[in-house]
Simulated assay, not measured.
Amino acid sequence: MKSIIEAHLKPKLHPVALLRSDVRPDENLQPKMGKYVCIMTMFAQVSAHGKTAVFDRNTYGCPGASAGLGFGSVYPSAMGGLDTFEAFFSKGIYSAKNPEAYQQMIDNAPKHMVNKLTVGEKFHATPEKAHRWMTEELPLYNFKEKYRILKPLSQVSEEETPESIIFVVNPLQLSALITLAGSIHDGLMDIMAPQGAACQMIGAYVFQQAESPQPRPVLGLTDLAARKHVRKTLPQDTLTLSMPWKLYLQYENAAEDGIFSSPLWEDML
């Protein structure tokens, strides 16, 4: 599938499409069953090298990605449940409701996780705020299709309809996309930049925007944990801007005679 926006941006990294399907693609990257991994490492391979990645209910990578990809939330059941994640996302053992049980989990954790579990990721100031985010604020979906597929937008067929289109951009390219969005949106919120995991910023939050009467693109890869995993594949100045399919089509139409034909963009190039 050809993209007017991609033709103007001339990105070094492939724009990526996220699709739901009951058909598993051949020759793809996929996490091993039961293995916790950051799926953004596979996203990076899709964007940087044109690979295809696939996930299902047994190979979604980590609890955050289950929610991010629309397989439902496993926060209440994984790793000791919500109490564990409340502490992990805030201030670690110092936020734990049951410090003894939390310490036992730390003692049994892989070496690379010990310090993060002990200190906490500090994405939320309090465990109560982390709880609200998991149970009330994070948009949760449980779609019926077996698979979620990530592949370059250029490899999407005319018969396919992606759920999310993800541009992987540097600051100049992001500036152009925000300007493009602002050129057609009313109001001042041209994009949204939510708290969450990088996979949720290309998935769950985009699914939510697709249902909004005034959808907005979602700024992502602001998740420091994910950035650590992709830093060997994606440039350090990279961010994602993701949008529902219908919003992408609006932007494609606006790009025909929008910011990319402005002298400002031509001067920057």
Results as ranks from 00 to 15, higher is better:
M1L: 10
M1K: 06
K2V: 07
H8D: 07
H8R: 05
L9Q: 01
L13Q: 08
H14S: 06
D22C: 15
L29W: 05
P31S: 04
K32P: 12
V37F: 07
I39D: 09
S47P: 03
A48M: 12
G50M: 11
G50H: 12
K51R: 15
F55G: 07
D56R: 13
R57D: 09
R57F: 09
N58F: 14
N58H: 12
C62K: 01
C62W: 01
S66E: 09
S66W: 03
F71C: 07
Y75F: 10
Y75T: 09
Y75D: 00
G80T: 02
G80V: 00
L82M: 14
F85L: 02
A87M: 14
F88L: 13
S90F: 09
A96Q: 10
P99L: 10
Y102P: 09
N108A: 15
A109P: 07
A109S: 05
N115C: 14
H124F: 08
M134T: 03
E136W: 02
P139D: 12
K146A: 07
L150F: 09
L153Y: 01
E159V: 06
E159Y: 03
P162H: 12
F167C: 06
L180C: 08
L180P: 04
A181P: 02
A181I: 05
A181G: 08
A181L: 02
G182Q: 03
S183K: 06
D186C: 04
M192Q: 10
C199W: 02
Q200D: 14
I202W: 01
A204N: 09
Y205A: 11
P213D: 08
Q214C: 11
P215Q: 09
V218F: 11
T222L: 14
D223T: 10
R227D: 01
T233G: 08
A255C: 08
F260N: 00
L264Q: 03
M268V: 07
L269P: 13
